[in-house]
Design a binder for these strands. Sequence first.
DNA 1: CTACCTTATGGTACTCAGTACCATTGTGGT
DNA 2: ACCACAATGGTACTGAGTACCATAAGGTAG
Lengths: 235, 235
Amino acid sequence: METRATPGAERGSSRERMIRAAYELFEQRGFERTTVDDIAARAGVGRTTFFRAFATKEDVIFPDHDSLVASVRERLAAATPSAALVAVTEAARLVLAHYLAEGDLARARYRLTSNVPALRAREISGQRQYQRTFLTFIRTWMGDEPGTPLRAELMADAVVTAHNHVLRQWLRGRTTTPEADFDAAMAAVVELFAPRSPAATSGTEGAGGTQVVLLRTQRDLDDVLPELKRVLEQG
Amino acid sequence: METRATPGAERGSSRERMIRAAYELFEQRGFERTTVDDIAARAGVGRTTFFRAFATKEDVIFPDHDSLVASVRERLAAATPSAALVAVTEAARLVLAHYLAEGDLARARYRLTSNVPALRAREISGQRQYQRTFLTFIRTWMGDEPGTPLRAELMADAVVTAHNHVLRQWLRGRTTTPEADFDAAMAAVVELFAPRSPAATSGTEGAGGTQVVLLRTQRDLDDVLPELKRVLEQG
DNA sequence: CTACCTTATGGTACTCAGTACCATTGTGGT
DNA sequence: ACCACAATGGTACTGAGTACCATAAGGTAG
């Protein structure tokens, strides 16, 4: 559960070598044509050591999945935002940043998950963990009024989907500005779930419920204000 | 050895017996404590026959998954609606109807997938197939204007999520009117993606990538400003 | 230094899922 | 009767994952 499997995380630790060896072998021979013995041998360790570090042969492809989920969970636990959805989008940014930092490794993984059904299934069920994490958070931050459970689920799913969409675009080399795309995608998601202006729709909260959401505002408020005014008037 | 008096496909075909045997054994001994040999023996067939009918031990839990996906695909291929989203919700109704018809079998499956991680993963990747099917359909029925790919993905995902939500409620015995719930859920999804009148969004690609999203802005900007400032400062 | 404990490691043997191959049987057609 | 063909069952093999035990490295107390 914790990343403390190897206390002295040095560069060429057993774990690191196994991961590297696995990726190399999977890329050249394919996933199913590579045995765990092959990986262990190339990493210079025994078979037992491999299964101590990774529960299954597939897990070596997603080495820090658990730690990422954990950090997302921490981030959400420490969040005190006005809107739960925005907090979740911020947490999702953490995940995106991780993949971007991985660089080529993330692209290699994408190649593998695209071609090997078993790995794709694994990745999907991993994504579901993020969805579950988001969902439980949103649930606690939303009331239990009727209709909200489904809404919460839709929200959690939408964030994951939007994140994956942007990530995939980047993995395919179809964008060079993933963070900006991410911001736009998350803005679209937030807007999607925004309560409607004409008060006709179901479950509109009190009149004083004006919500303002700001994403990635390093700039001063005064800098943004003119644009803000412009947007408001054109609406 | 079995004296088969009636030729041809009789009620208890090999396939049916294997499915029944598998469910019984999984329920009483658990999934991992049941071997394929056990299932085959109880069904009165050889091990080879089992693997001819089901590619993996897990597949016996989802016997008609492929045929269901196929029928959904056919339904969509034959659809000529004005709105793609509505066509997809109608196709999703097909899936719900199937599970409802299964009755106790569906509930037994739910019990298994809830307790066995391997089966849960399998189910999730199966659901992803529906999502993919819906997605490709929605994509072809929507133009390729920028921004639509993400929107299409969100739609496909929302339909699957809403379907699963209602189905799960029924599987847990928390509702006796699943069809009505389904209609309500799908209506919520459709409404979610309905074009909205007065909301305003601005995706600004400034130096810092600042983005501002305003929700429910009936009030004057000056009224909102203090709150805006407060939010900004606490960030 | 020795005794002892802990931790990472490697080796061996086992169960079982999944594959490949072959032998057998039953069925239908001519 | 003969033959084609599909379904079935058996046998043997690879490889993932588990259980168990043995050993080496490092630190600590006596």
